[in-house]
Nucleic acid binder design. Structure first.
Lengths: 195, 195
DNA sequence: ATCAATTTTGACAAGTATGTCAACAATGAC
DNA sequence: GTCATTGTTGACATACTTGTCAAAATTGAT
């Protein structure tokens, strides 16, 4: 490498995720991204070709972090507690971020999914991964005799639940409401306390 | 009235709802609305002041229809069947519309809620109404000994479920998946078949 | 039929966003 | 230290969107 990039790509993508999360895909301009990252617009165009590509990169960056985060929160040996902890952490993450930004992936799905097949694939791929992680944990729970039900369907259902909570956050920005929702959902699920 | 409006306001709002549903708030331009409605841009500005107001009117128009629709689908005397019918109808409505448009209110919440306090209020007001309708049906179910649980929390949870399904529609546009989700959710709920 | 109020129409101005480019700066390799 | 390569910078052209306005058209009321 000869001319080396001045800005830290990691930082820029982190900030891009923030900006896209809080303004949404369409309302975010390259100028916004330039201002927030401190990188000139021209440099962004040089590094990424355009907004779509930058979004794409930011999204990959986000999913890498998020999926790791999700898996980390499902570690508790009691299945119901594991999922409770997961949702608790998701809600914390949604609410505790400075100035209520909103869920990056949910906003992306609502706004950008239909934009192009690549982005659509990348978004469904993310949800699929989420589903797999949850399904695996549920399979484990079944093995541990802590859950009786269809792991596949339940995982899909739980993925949908995370999306619903993300929408509720946008509307009410009320942590108690979000907590009530996932607790109600988890209480209804056929978990069994360990034998 | 002297100079009478040429276009049918009802029709225009119907179409506006369609356009906002399929493109989202930000991506919808006044030109889009003019093209789709066949009403000149200038006339739209004359009738409504700007995009925000037009959106506001379209939203009210939408909620009037939607809440009536929701109540209509909850008529079945068996509570679980009533809610199953409701979700079935919601999914139909989401999927059967020409060229997969997406849920108007969910898109609005994700994109427009933070725009201004008025719109925020109007969106939460809509969700609140939805919640009340569901809570009333659940209260009835409790009276009928068809349900045991907290009507308030469950209603909120179900509102969130409708939002989650709307997001899933955007990502996958897969009716079977959406059906699986609400069936899983309803199967987990503490309904009792009538005594 | 005329009038007055209102809508419609198309053009205009201003602002915003995108994407490109040429000149310039920086730096690793030799 | 020079060079070649790449990144940075700010300006530019283009396109899009919004909102306004004056002139023209329309129509209910008289």
């Amino acid at each position: 490498m000869v001319g080396t990039r001045k800005f830290n790509e990691e930082d820029v993508l982190d900030i891009a995720v923030e900006v896209f999360s809080s303004k949404g895909f369409n309302a975010t301009t390259m100028l916004d991204l330039a201002k927030e990252t401190g990188v000139q617009r021209g440099s962004l165009y040089n590094a990424y070709q355009n907004k779509d590509v930058l979004f794409f990169k930011a999204f990959s960056h986000f999913t890498d972090n998020f999926l790791t985060f999700i898996e980390g929160e499902l570690q508790h040996s009691d299945a119901k507690k594991a999922f409770t902890q997961l949702f608790k952490a998701i809600v914390e993450r949604l609410c505790n971020d400075k100035e209520a930004k909103g869920c990056f992936s949910t906003r992306a799905i609502m706004e950008a999914a239909q934009k192009c097949p690549n982005i659509q694939l990348c978004l469904t791929g993310f949800l699929d991964s989420l589903e797999v992680i949850m399904k695996n944990r549920l399979d484990q729970a079944i093995t541990d005799q802590q859950f009786i039900g269809n792991a596949q369907s339940t995982a899909r259902y739980l993925v949908s639940l995370t999306r619903g909570i993300a929408v509720i956050e946008r509307a009410y920005n009320d942590k108690a409401r979000m907590t009530d929702i996932y607790q109600t959902a988890l209480d209804y699920m056929p978990f069994k306390t360990a034998v």
